[in-house]
Simulated scan of single mutants.
Amino acid sequence: MPVLTPTLLNTERLALRWPEERDRDAIFAIYSDPAVVRYWSNEAWSTLAQADEWIASRRAGNADGSGVCLVVTLAGSGELIGTLSLYHFFEQSRRCDIGYAFGSRHWGKGYAYESLHVLLEYGFRHLDLNRIEADIDPGNAPSGRVLERLGFRKEGYMPERWIVHGETADTVFYGLLKSYWDTKPS
């Protein structure tokens, strides 16, 4: 893994940057929303201390190169609307997992696709990754559509892999190879 420095990635509508302590309230608003964490393995947050812990752990991961976490902000206003992560790096295989969450009032506006596109480009070009993997609940159809639009391919299905909010939950695995990315239509 290369040494990471504070990263700023931009699109026409968005700015992606490392999380900062000042992001506490906005990050808490995202992860305390039951709709956002419906398909996650954790309950909705209930205290601001959880946001502080999240920020500290993500900043530490960015600093030591064990992960890349960026917050997604609107370019015009600077409003924080989501988070993106590349994590669980397997250096020898040049692969990792990807994760993302967006505030529910920002769903359906193309922000996930737009920000993930620039993060994937960063991962394949700057971090020299060969493979990026995603693990989603099959009930989360919008997330599956975003991944497929980005070029991810469904690779597997595991029934009852997780216990989420007291219920068993299945997993659909997706993978994106650098070779898929390099040949994907724009």
Rank of each mutant, 00 (worst) to 15 (best):
G76R: 05
A44N: 02
Y39E: 07
R38D: 00
T11G: 03
D64I: 12
G65V: 07
N42D: 14
L80H: 07
W40K: 11
W45Q: 03
A51I: 04
G78P: 00
F28E: 14
R59N: 08
A51P: 11
D25R: 15
N62G: 04
A75L: 09
T11Q: 03
N42Q: 13
L80R: 13
L9G: 02
R58L: 03
D64H: 02
I27K: 13
D64W: 01
I27R: 12
D23R: 06
P34V: 10
A35G: 11
V71Y: 07
D23F: 03
L16A: 05
G61M: 08
P19V: 00
W18F: 04
T47N: 04
W45A: 07
G76F: 03
R58D: 03
A75R: 10
V68K: 08
A49K: 03
N62Q: 02
G65T: 08
N62H: 05
S77N: 05
N10E: 15
E53A: 15
S41I: 11
Y39K: 07
V68L: 11
W18L: 01
F28H: 15
S77E: 11
A49P: 04
R13V: 10
N62W: 05
A29H: 12
L80F: 04
S57I: 09
A15K: 12
E12A: 13
L8N: 12
W54T: 08
W18I: 01
L16F: 04
R17H: 04
V36R: 15
A49N: 10
G76S: 12
V37L: 08
D23T: 00
R17T: 01
R13H: 12
S66M: 02
T47I: 08
E20N: 09
I81W: 06
I81L: 00
L14E: 08
I55N: 06
V36M: 11
G65E: 08
A51V: 01
W40S: 14
A49D: 15
F28R: 12
A29E: 12
W18S: 01
S41Y: 06
A49R: 03
G78V: 00
P34A: 14
L14S: 05
S66I: 07
T47C: 08
L80G: 13
L9S: 08
E20G: 07
L80A: 07
A63H: 03
E12S: 09
E20F: 01
G65S: 03
Y31Q: 11
A44L: 06
L48P: 10
P19M: 00
Q50A: 09
T7G: 05
D25H: 10
E53D: 15
G82E: 04
L70M: 05
L8D: 06
S32H: 10
A26E: 15
E21C: 04
S57H: 14
S41T: 15
V68Y: 00
V71F: 05
L48H: 10
S46L: 04
W54Q: 10
R38T: 14
S46A: 11
W18M: 02
G65K: 00
S46H: 14
S77H: 03
W45C: 03
I55M: 05
L80N: 14
R22M: 05
L74M: 09
D33F: 14
N62E: 00
Y39F: 15
W54E: 05
A15F: 08
